[in-house]
Amino acid sequence: MSAAAMSRRTLGALVLGLSLAACSSGTPTASAGTAPATFAPLVKKVLPSVVNIAVTEVVSGNDVMADLPPELRGTPFERQFRDRFRDRREQILGAGSGFVIDPSGVIVTNNHVVGHAAKIVVSLSDGTELPATVIGTDSLTDIAVIKVNAGHTLPAVSWGDSRAVEVGDWILAAGNPFGLGGSVTVGIVSARGRDIGAGPFDDFLQLDAPINPGNSGGPTFNLDGQVVGVNTAIVSPTGGSVGIGFAIPSQIVEGIVADLRSKGHIDRGWLGVSVSESDAAGKVSGVTIAGVDRQGPAARAGVRAGDIVTAVNGDHVDTARGLIRAVAATQPGTVVHLSLLRAGRAFDVSVTVGHRPADSAG
């Protein structure tokens, strides 16, 4: 991906945009806890399904001027710089990775790889270059689905169950680091359930396989050659790999991809509230309603700021993230039952869930 695209996705030292991971059971003696003598059979099995993605973005003159060098500010040269770039449009080239999940040419990648692209070109493992169109994107989980028409079937990989992945399991990463083309690395799952502050649905697998910018959107494979994650971010003070990367678990990606393929977008539930962890000095486990949108579903149902949500449809919630996820996973138009505490009194409220607006909190 381009330097400009990388800077937009930087989160402190977390640079959004990683690699694809792939690991296989090509050796009969290999298991989740034992490294095979060689990963070559696995690489031969999965690498043909891994693609390189090149994108072209068009940046307006206003965006260029936003990067005015500090040394020019307040000098006579500032006006010359602004006059020069005011009406200019720049093309920025970026690179990422993806993988084929359907022989018809359906490919999964990251939203931040293709979300702003004016043109997308996919390079297959045999060097064939094909234009791609976007089927659908989801910025909240950073997943995108694109499609190419190759005129023939393409080798595709299958989903694995990320819920079965354990810390210490082997994985193999493959992708397009720094635009170099098909590359593979190997490592283990270092941790599960990582929240890196990228969004409300963070639940990353942490990997130690070397992954770098340009590997964004690539798959993480288990030793059976199944996709158990989509690589999306790295910890990178220098811009290169320091051995800490993050992949979106397949249990999240698979459902998002299915919805994007069928509808082109994701419908998420919305209450119209802002929330925080309960501050009732540890006496009450729940989520405090910090604010209520007057036009939102919760307000219409009688929910007030200061109420504490203890359960959604009978399932206990004790974190703001848990409440947001529970509501977001609910189909708009569905009625949910909230268990609330107000001034020490417990009661239930039925709310008809609305459509989550872009960049909404809950």
Rank of each mutant, 00 (worst) to 15 (best):
R300Q: 09
G136R: 01
D318I: 09
I92R: 15
I252G: 07
P249L: 04
V284C: 07
N52A: 14
V15C: 08
S162I: 00
A40P: 05
T153E: 15
V335Q: 13
E166A: 15
R89D: 10
I244M: 12
I324W: 06
E78G: 03
T10V: 14
F347G: 09
L68D: 06
S241L: 03
S350M: 11
G115D: 09
G229H: 04
T238G: 10
D63A: 13
S2G: 12
V59G: 03
Q80Y: 11
T75E: 07
R268E: 06
R88S: 11
P249S: 09
S19A: 12
S183G: 10
G115M: 02
A358F: 10
A247L: 07
Q331H: 15
V353W: 09
L154I: 02
G239S: 11
L140G: 11
V167Q: 11
D315R: 15
A37D: 12
D87V: 07
K263G: 14
I324G: 02
V113S: 00
I211T: 09
I143K: 01
A156E: 02
A37K: 12
G314R: 10
V317P: 00
K44Y: 13
A132N: 04
L323F: 04
P103R: 06
V235Q: 14
V64I: 15
S162H: 07
D87W: 11
I196A: 04
A21H: 05
F81V: 00
G199P: 10
T334P: 11
G218D: 02
P177Q: 02
V257M: 01
